[in-house]
């Protein structure tokens, strides 16, 4: 068997670092191919204090520019209801609302969301009073392990608000950006249709 000599700079399998993403523009992350060469830079990333408005509360947080909204929520604000399933826009587990619109919080930087009103799963219920979408998910067993559920529910709330819940098929199409590996899709459709009807 022939020997191959391979000398490669260390790279993660994840492709570009957050720094590359910053250069390329944040929205390019989802389509950047894997196994591109990272930029070998060592200097500290710029950082500073920003104000995030989350669930009606103002939070002063110190973040580097490369920190995603998702990691700011999870790792700085201890708002762990928003989940990370892929960190590259493929699964929807990180879905939150920004000024009422659904976004994938792994695909945007925290600094870009200053001044927007962010709503996460923690901000949906009024105390222990569930939002109708949460109640419908519970009633229809629209989850099993529950890890995709915060993202599904935030996406579902927006789906209804967008007027995309008029038929089962419309819900299926407009909810296809949120993966559920436990595969509760039919129950998710039932829950959304019921909540939309209210």
């Amino acid at each position: 068997m022939p020997l191959l000599w391979v000398k490669l700079h260390g790279m993660t399998q994840d492709g570009p670092t957050r720094r590359d993403v910053l250069k390329a523009g944040a929205t390019a992350a989802a389509i950047t191919p894997v196994l591109t060469q990272p930029v070998l830079a060592g200097a500290a990333a710029p950082s500073g204090a920003i104000t995030l408005l989350v669930n009606g509360e103002r939070h002063q947080v110190e973040v580097e520019a490369r920190v995603t909204l998702l990691d700011a929520l999870r790792e700085r604000l201890a708002l762990t209801g928003t989940k990370k399933g892929c960190d590259r826009g493929e699964c929807g587990a990180c879905t939150v609302l920004a000024d009422g619109k659904r976004i994938k919080s792994c695909l945007t930087l925290a600094v870009m969301q200053e001044g927007r009103e962010i709503t996460t799963i923690e901000g949906l219920a009024e105390g222990d009073e569930l939002h109708p979408m949460q109640a419908a998910f519970l009633k229809h067993d629209a989850f099993q392990c529950g890890i995709c559920t915060p993202g599904q529910i935030m996406s579902a709330v927006a789906c209804v608000a967008e007027g995309h819940a008029g038929s089962d098929q419309e819900v299926r199409d407009w909810m296809s950006g949120n993966l559920c590996r436990c595969s509760c899709y039919p129950n998710i459709v039932d829950a959304i249709r019921e909540a939309a009807g209210r």
Partner: peptide, 27 residues
Amino acid sequence: VALVVARTLEEAQHAATLVEVAYDARR
């Protein structure tokens, strides 16, 4: 082949890209 520990997630992720590894690789 390596495990980087840092104060923040971003620091760990970035430093992981700076580890250089050379291999004697077989097909």
